[in-house]
């Protein structure tokens, strides 16, 4: 009974510490994703100057190396889009590419430069498209990233 209580107590303590760590680390993670977002907006700036309207809405999170994530968006035929991805983590390398709802690559052009990546798409049809984001390499286990897009 005592052993069980002790085990239960230890488990409770471990859980409490994990929770404490999560609470303590959450703002840090949030801050770094916010930093990634700042970099993504930096990458979008030249396109803004070219007349692209950049959306306030953004995607973000953290990924392990080679882990991919799909984010979906409704794109309109007739518009031209630039998706810009960035991380604040020095030494990280990212990529972003756009696929239609059948899984076909629809990039019009793309570039990749260290912790920045960009892809342009001119949809042939209005519909749902998927931006596949990936961390190609990184000095850390998890790499914060953010993705924004602009249209004109």
């Amino acid at each position: 009974m005592i052993a069980s209580a002790s085990h239960s107590c230890r488990r409770g303590l471990t859980g409490f510490l994990a929770l404490l760590a999560a609470v303590a680390l959450a703002p840090l993670l949030h801050a770094t994703v916010d930093d990634a977002l700042s970099f993504a907006y930096e990458a979008a700036l030249p396109y803004y100057k070219q007349g692209y309207s950049v959306r306030k809405d953004a995607w973000g999170g953290d990924l392990a190396v080679h882990q991919k994530k799909a984010v979906s968006s409704q794109l309109f035929k007739g518009n031209d889009y630039w998706f810009l991805m960035a991380s604040d983590l020095k030494g990280a390398s990212l990529s972003v590419h756009i696929y239609d709802d059948k899984g076909n690559l629809v990039d019009a052009e793309s570039w990749q430069r260290g912790r920045f990546a960009g892809v342009r798409v001119s949809p042939k049809a209005t519909g749902t498209y998927f931006a596949i984001v990936q961390v190609l390499k990184s000095p850390e286990d998890r790499t914060p990233w953010a993705l924004v897009y602009g249209y004109k």
Partner: peptide
Amino acid sequence: APLHADNPPKKIALSDFPAAAVQEVVVP
């Protein structure tokens, strides 16, 4: 620096991305 592009596959299976990996749609 020259801009590099990686070599993405021309076709992917979207089913490889479980629902949890596909984030919420941003409404236009």
